[in-house]
Write a protein that binds this DNA or RNA. Structure first.
Length: 572
RNA sequence: CGGGGUGUAGCGCAGUCUGGUAGCGCGCCAGCUUUGGGAGCUGGAUGUCGCAGGUUCGAAUCCUGCCACCCCGACCA
């Protein structure tokens, strides 16, 4: 590609709305332009990278036995009513009506459509297993799009769906996808972790997220330092904590005035205690039933875990009014003593010792309160948010915390969709059974941003060669028409013929501009041709990843570059 | 949806408090010079000052309403 005929407008300054590195660089280097909140146009460079990512995804999925389809973006509401999600999905689902008044939505995901497709034509166990996938734009009307294309409303996604005759086969499908995902993200050059995750809206009971590690990531994950355990903090279990009280017998409970001290910090500072000496009592509505969830002052409640462990449909923190009604005190003074709702206490709370707790009255706390002695008997459950340094639930190691960008997610769905939508098949024994499903997503456009978060420097992007828009940029330092340009053009042509994705910077600009643009766009290799080098019949080959330059004889150049590009994952 | 912020040329910004000819840098166009790290000189083009209404002789500036975008939170395959 000749840069003079291309369209890669670069910006010297980053638009001020771009906070994330990846967002700023995608704009500056001319990969994307924003059209509206969370809605982006991909420019030619962006399209090239997206296609390379999609090509890797397609290759690995086909290798794992999946077959590509392409479903419509617009879906009839009737299907969503059948699955029950028309009412459940909420405002994130963009709904619309056609001219006849029929209801539709813009697909945020395609379980309904794929089930409809498969139930029409797949009737027998002989046609299973089946795995269908597509690469397509999705639309989710996010409350708050952010971070450029990291969380866009319209984005490019690969979604795959597996159909199996029994659980054993379905687990194999899941495992095959899991393995394919590892290969995909490795080939994209990402540093990632597969983590155990909550299944959220999609449902099912087995799920892994693939998280690209990045300090700017939205998701918190914990990973054991000595075993394989890795989980989203939304779900992460916490190992047993030894009790610290030992033989110390707590004294009897007494009340203390704590005027105006509402927060854990205020109360413990006022009493000269540490946050780990206090119990926070949080009023939550569990499927509408008020309950007190109790965690240590230095811990955080995890409402998702609470929901999972209780098998509840919804867990919501009570509002100010409701807290006042239930505890009889303003927010900040809730405590378990005398409270007439069920108590759930976190497993890392030592029930043998005395605690500072709220007094259920304004400006009042108790100390030396012992759970079960001074309060109703609590249920003990693992309900807090895992954090750095917590014990691993699987071994004796401890958990470390990372931040990540979710680039993929695999779900074991079971019969969540096949039952309500009547997706059945004739089994070998002559009976009729619902199919066992799995679904598997990859955020193709998000990979582009996540990769930049991991691979950049102060000059710009450093693409792994596997997904770079171009593999090399040929930079002649001269004027169009002079011998340096002519030689560069010939080198460019030879690269093209050898199957190398080359960009020829045939603009009549100065050297500095060409270098700066090439570095911004992140081409893995620059082939720099100047007058002196040409006299020696060599070029300078510069690696974007290492910044190192080597002189290579023009005659050996193509083979040399091909060798570099064939190396695993290219750069960085 | 709660809190905060910003809307002035393609990008980055000043001007707004205290109303009076709409500016600066980069980019863009033309010419000359320059050509190994975002060139120099000369000349030029580009604005519904987010939108609507109001106050005023006069509004980018003051008032009212609205809209868009961004950030934090809540939310979220």
């Amino acid at each position: 590609m000749r840069l003079s005929r291309f369209h890669a407008p670069t910006l010297r300054d980053a638009p001020k709305e771009a906070e994330l590195v990846s967002h700023a660089l995608l704009l500056r280097a001319g990969f994307v332009r924003q059209l509206a909140a969370g809605i982006y146009t991909l420019l030619p460079l962006g399209v090239r990278t997206l296609r390379k990512i999609a090509a890797i995804v397609r290759e690995e999925l086909e290798r794992a036995g999946a077959v590509e389809v392409l479903m419509p973006a617009i879906q009839p509401a009737s299907l969503w009513k059948q699955s029950g999600r028309w009412d459940k999905y909420g405002p994130e689902l963009l709904r619309l009506e056609d001219r006849k008044g029929n209801e539709f939505c813009v697909g945020p995901t395609h379980e309904e459509v794929i089930v409809d497709l498969v139930r029409r034509d797949v009737k027998s166990y002989r046609q299973l297993p089946l795995n269908l996938y597509q690469v397509q734009s999705k639309f989710r009307d996010e409350v708050r799009p952010r971070g450029g294309i990291i969380r866009a409303r319209e984005f490019m996604m690969k979604d795959a769906y597996s159909f199996d005759a029994d659980a054993e086969a379905a687990e194999k499908s899941y495992k095959d996808m899991f393995d394919a995902y590892h290969r995909i993200f490795e080939r994209c050059g990402l540093d990632f972790r597969a983590v155990e995750a909550d299944t959220g809206n999609i449902g099912g009971n087995l799920s892994h997220e693939f998280q690209a590690l990045a300090s700017s990531g939205e998701d918190a994950i914990v990973s054991c330092d000595s075993c394989e355990y890795t989980a989203n903090t939304e779900k992460a279990a916490i190992g047993p904590v030894g009790t610290q009280a030992g033989d110390i017998q707590p004294g009897s409970m007494s009340s203390i005035a704590t005027p105006g001290k509402r927060t854990v910090q205020d109360v413990t500072t006022f009493l000269g205690a540490s946050p780990s000496d206090l119990l926070k009592t949080l009023i939550v509505d569990i499927d509408g039933v008020p309950t007190a969830a109790i965690v240590r002052g230095d811990h955080e409640l995890n409402t998702i875990k609470l929901k999972l462990v209780l098998g509840a449909d919804s867990v919501e923190l009570a509002g100010e009014e409701r807290v006042r009604k239930i505890t009889g005190a303003p927010v900040g003074f809730a405590g378990p003593v005398g409270l007439e709702v069920p108590l759930i206490v976190d497993a890392s709370v030592d029930v043998a010792r005395g605690w500072i707790v709220g007094g259920n009255a304004a400006d009042l706390h108790h100390k030396d309160a012992v759970l079960g002695r001074d309060t109703a008997e609590p249920r003990v459950l693992d309900i807090r948010l895992a954090t750095h340094g917590d014990p691993c639930p699987r071994c004796n190691g401890s958990l470390r915390e990372f931040r990540g960008i979710e680039v993929g997610h695999v779900f074991y769905l079971g019969t969540k969709y096949s039952e309500p939508m009547d997706l059945t098949f004739a089994s070998q024994d002559g009976g009729t059974k619902p199919m066992i499903m799995g679904c598997y997503g990859i955020g193709i456009s998000r990979i582009m941003a996540a990769t930049i978060e991991q691979h950049h420097d102060d000059k710009g992007i450093r693409w792994p060669a596997s997904i770079a828009p171009f593999e090399v940029a040929v930079l002649p330092l001269g004027k169009p028409g002079d011998d340096v340009f002519v030689a560069a053009e010939e080198i460019y042509n030879r690269c093209c013929h050898a199957g190398i994705d080359a960009l020829f910077d045939d603009r009549k600009g100065r050297a500095g501009v060409k270098f700066a643009d090439a570095e911004l766009a992140g081409h893995p290799y620059q082939i720099v041709l100047g007058r002196n080098a040409l006299a020696d019949n060599v070029v300078e080959l510069k690696s974007r990843a290492t910044g190192e330059t080597e002189r290579v004889a023009i005659g050996d150049l193509v083979e040399h570059v091909k060798g570099l590009l064939a190396a695993p994952t290219g750069t960085a």
